[in-house]
Amino acid sequence: MPSLNLVSRLLQLLLGLFLFGIASSLMIRAGIGIAPWDVLSQGIALRSGWGFGLVTNIVGVCVLLMWLPLRQKPGLGTVLNVLLIGPSAQLGLNLLPPAHGLQWQLPLFAGGLLLMAVATGLYIGARFGPGPRDGLMTGLHARTGWPIWKVRSLIEASALAVGWLLGGNVGWGTLAFALLIGPLCGITLPLFDRQRRAVVAAPGS
């Protein structure tokens, strides 16, 4: 029988991945710019005619394949990340109409950004392995010796540029995402990191 802690971690992971996809759909429907990887998926979806959720899954698989020469080992969270975020994002897009007017666009985008920070804290804090994009970043860092910030910037700038050329939505929201998602995740990650909380709660800590 799986332990209660394992079950609760798995539920935290699944909730985080589901909310991550919903957060993406909120920002897409806001229409003022989206995250770099979503720009790439949106651009491919526009060019191919495939659904955004399906393209998100395909991009995730392609990124995961890039782990092979980097000798990265995926965890359960990595695999579920690839499989589940796309369908939840597509669900959100199917349910939400596009927003019109800044009085609707700004709160919708802000809600999506905050929800994505919470979702990131949930699925990373469950400690079932990094997402495919995070693993690519850490793998390239380990192989090249470049600083994490430089590797992350190069990867996301490449995804953003290709997505923009394909017609993905780049705007003020994209800049706001780049500036704010790091600090926001700095708040949510400690809240949902189970190992850190266990250490803090331990006697004598």
Rank of each mutant, 00 (worst) to 15 (best):
M1G: 15
L6G: 11
L6D: 14
V7S: 13
R9K: 10
Q12T: 12
L14F: 06
L14D: 01
G16K: 04
G16N: 04
I22N: 07
A23E: 07
S24H: 15
S25P: 09
M27N: 10
M27V: 02
G31V: 05
G33N: 01
G33F: 00
I34E: 13
A35G: 13
W37I: 14
V39W: 05
L40C: 04
S41C: 07
Q42T: 00
Q42W: 09
Q42E: 13
L46V: 08
L46Q: 04
L46A: 07
S48E: 10
G49Y: 14
G51E: 06
G51Y: 02
T56Q: 05
T56P: 08
N57H: 15
I58K: 11
C62F: 12
V63Q: 10
V63M: 05
L64W: 02
L64C: 01
L64M: 11
L65D: 01
M66G: 15
P69I: 08
L70E: 04
L70Q: 10
L70D: 04
Q72E: 15
K73Q: 15
G75S: 10
L76R: 00
L76F: 04
G77L: 06
T78L: 05
T78C: 07
V82R: 00
I85N: 03
I85V: 15
G86V: 02
G86R: 07
P87I: 04
S88E: 03
Q90Y: 04
L91S: 03
L93T: 03
L95P: 06
P97F: 13
P98M: 04
A99C: 02
H100E: 12
W104G: 09
Q105S: 14
L106F: 08
L106A: 14
L108S: 06
L108C: 08
A110V: 14
G112R: 12
M116W: 00
A117S: 15
A119P: 00
G121K: 06
Y123P: 05
I124C: 11
G125M: 06
G129V: 13
G131I: 05
G131F: 12
P132S: 09
P132T: 12
P132H: 09
D134R: 05
L136N: 00
L136M: 06
L136Y: 10
M137P: 14
M137S: 04
G139T: 00
L140E: 06
H141T: 10
P147M: 11
K150Y: 05
R152H: 11
A157Y: 11
A157N: 03
S158M: 10
S158L: 13
A159M: 14
G163V: 07
W164K: 03
G167S: 13
V170H: 01
G171T: 05
G171A: 14
W172E: 01
G173C: 04
T174R: 09
A176V: 14
A176I: 13
F177K: 02
L179M: 01
I181D: 07
G182V: 01
G182F: 03
L184G: 05
G186L: 01
G186K: 03
T188M: 12
D193W: 07
R194P: 05
Q195F: 10
Q195H: 15
R197N: 14
R197K: 15
A198T: 09
A198G: 00
P203L: 08
G204Y: 11
S205A: 13
S205P: 12
S205W: 01
